[in-house]
Design a protein around this nucleic acid. Structure first.
Length: 611
DNA sequence: GCCGTTTTCGGCCCGACTGTTTTCAGTCG
């Protein structure tokens, strides 16, 4: 399927990001300074983090230049190149690199085990210009004649190429998390006394996962060996990449997906340092180590040590901290930064220590959520009756549950005609009247039709306690049309929540690409909440868009969109994403006391800015 | 290439593991 080109301006960011990545890779392949290439990579990341099209960052070139240079990591050179791209559609340095370096070499860098040095050697010595050339040369036996290339390396490259064809994309968190939990629990059952935790980007709440990271600690070396053996001998393992005393690395095949998994092993006294190191992000680790240096200390995965001696753990050094992550932050004069915030965007040096402390004090936590305002019953495509939903909500400790079945246009999902909706609402209200421990609300998930009108007339919407308005069809509209469509829903006085605003499916469907800033401004003005749909296949809005919403101070609704009991468990995915955006609990309507929630539902203008 | 409560020049995180080597380069996270 061709990628939807419904958003020309954001393609500018994508193209620029790619240009800087290729600049970096190209310099590496040419053997240039690794600091220059690292710098280009940092610029590429910074561009990838932008939510607005880069050419719309300023009204004129001077303003654009100033805004660009204010972004950490983007200096004079990168600014010049970006402006050059905006004006001419290409960057001379980038074009030159592409002329000097065969395009296939960039793909070769993606082959696990092949780095810039090896690719350069293959290119210069054997004329290898891409994956097909490499396959041929591996078969010819000539690769083995190169320096530092032996039989084992050739064998590893063969299986790496095979792995690469099976892992075109990163794994959506919905698939990665169950696998990681299973691996974790398997290790825990092998050594019940061991501490075993999931680390890596999965712990940070990233929506797609490149590989799985686990950390385990046990005081007994024999127990650690048993953990390592269990890990590399798992039935799903297809290749063992490394198997050492402290680190094991394997490739797994599960449910039709191939993914790499790494296990880090150590002493309980260093568990916090290891967990911290293996959780990342890489940028956060670098930052923490730099801060440690500022204190005249050294941070590594064994702990925080006094002095600047390399490998202090080997010289009988006793760490100042290491058993728990919190000790590391404390010893470096920082507040504990939760895993979801260990990204460049929340760098303490960038946001300021005071602002960071304030953000952490207000940051949303899963146990603060007491309401789910978007769920489905058997009236449309849900699995449970109203009575069953009430039982589930009670068991899960909710104070408020809204049943929001589909509207009439969603025929396949069993959307309700107006008469059926009214009967359904009456049934919900009757059941609600007999409850004293749960507020049960009658609502609907109303389709936002392609032209921005809603699937029920206003007088019907007015009869409901909660209206979630969501786009379900025409999800390839252009940016301007999509923005107009969603703005119309946000401005409707009967709409409380804009449900899964883009309609994207992680890794599969791009969905609408509206002007997020315009949506946030309107939502803020009208007191409408933007949904963070917690279904891990959706996570819509995503963390970057939600960060914009947080900056503007919009109301946000984190709802599960549950169609079954198990799907109420999606909440944790939603909360992790919300934390990645720095969402304060108070901005999330699902944390509000039922009384306050009712007031807002009765008149959402009480939630609008400046009221 | 970027950056500065040590610096506008001189640095830029730290360690595990493998495979090919007789002491370590390359890759990875």
């Amino acid at each position: 399927m061709a990628a939807a080109r419904n958003d020309v301006s954001n393609d500018v960011n994508k193209a620029l990001q790619r240009a800087f990545e290729e600049l970096a890779d190209g310099l590496d392949l040419l053997g240039e300074s690794s600091f220059r290439s690292a710098s280009h990579r940092r610029v590429a990341r910074a561009i990838g983090d932008l939510t607005a099209p880069i050419d719309q960052l300023g009204d004129d070139p001077a303003q654009l230049r100033a805004r660009l240079e204010a972004i950490p990591g983007i200096g004079e050179g990168a600014t010049r190149r970006i402006l050059e791209f905006v004006e001419h559609g290409e960057i001379a340095d980038h074009v030159e690199i592409l002329e000097r370096v065969p395009g296939g070499l960039f793909q070769l860098l993606q082959v696990p085990g092949l780095g810039p040095k090896a690719v350069r050697t293959l290119w210069q010595e054997l004329g290898v210009q891409g994956v097909d050339d490499l396959r041929r040369e591996l078969d010819s036996g000539r690769v083995e004649s190169l320096p530092r290339m032996g039989r084992k390396t050739v064998q590893n490259l063969r299986s790496a190429l095979e792995f690469l064809t099976r892992t075109r994309d990163r794994l959506p968190v919905a698939l990665a998390m169950p696998l990681a939990l299973d691996l974790r629990d398997g290790l825990r059952s092998v050594e019940p006394e061991a501490r075993v935790e999931i680390a890596g980007s999965l712990r940070r709440g990233v929506e797609t996962i490149g590989d799985l990271d686990l950390v385990a600690a046990h005081h007994d070396p024999a127990a650690r060996r048993r953990l390592a053996e269990a890990f590399v001998n798992d039935g799903r393992v297809t290749d063992v990449l490394a198997s050492g005393e402290r680190k094991c690395s394997v490739r797994l095949s599960a449910g039709g997906h191939a993914i790499q998994a790494d296990l880090r092993l150590g002493e309980p006294a260093a568990f916090g340092a290891a967990l911290h190191y293996f959780t990342g992000s890489k940028e956060h680790n670098v930052l923490m180590r730099q801060i440690a240096i500022g204190f005249g200390r050294r941070l590594n995965e064994y702990g925080l040590f006094e002095g600047d001696e390399p490998r202090p753990q080997d010289h009988g050094g006793t760490p100042l901290a290491g058993a728990e992550e919190a000790e590391l932050y404390d010893a470096l004069g920082l507040p504990f930064i939760p895993a979801e915030l260990r990204e460049e965007a929340f760098d303490p040096a960038r946001v300021g220590l005071e602002a960071l402390r304030d953000l952490l004090a207000r940051l949303i936590d899963e146990d603060q959520i007491v309401a789910d305002l978007h769920t489905h019953s058997t009236a449309s495509d849900g699995r449970h009756s109203l009575e069953e939903l009430v039982a589930i909500a009670r068991r899960r400790g909710l104070a408020v549950l809204a049943v929001t079945d589909h509207s009439r246009s969603s025929v396949l999902a069993g959307g309700l005609e107006i008469d059926a909706l009214r009967e359904h609402v009456a049934a919900i209200r009757e059941l609600a009247a007999g409850l004293d421990d749960l507020v049960l609300l009658a609502g609907a998930e109303v389709d936002i039709l392609p032209d921005g009108s809603l699937d029920y007339p206003d007088e019907v919407l007015a009869e409901l306690d909660v209206v979630v308005a969501s786009p379900h069809v025409s999800l390839s509209q252009d940016r301007a049309t999509a923005t107009r469509r969603l703005l119309a829903a946000i401005r409707n006085p009967h709409v409380h929540i804009l449900g899964h605003p883009t309609g994207r499916i992680v890794g599969r469907r791009r969905g609408l690409q509206p002007d997020i800033d315009a949506l946030c401004a309107a939502a803020s003005e009208h007191g409408t909440a933007l949904e963070l749909n917690a279904n891990p296949r959706r996570l819509d809005l995503d963390d970057a868009a939600l960060r914009r919403a947080v900056e503007v101070g919009c109301l946000v609704a984190i709802d599960t969109d549950a169609h079954s009991d198990a799907q109420f468990g999606y909440l944790s995915y939603g909360v992790r994403t919300a934390r990645r955006a720095g969402l304060p609990a108070d901005s999330c309507v699902n944390t509000w006391e039922p009384e306050r929630l009712r007031d807002w539902l009765a008149d959402k203008s009480v939630g609008a800015r400046g009221r």
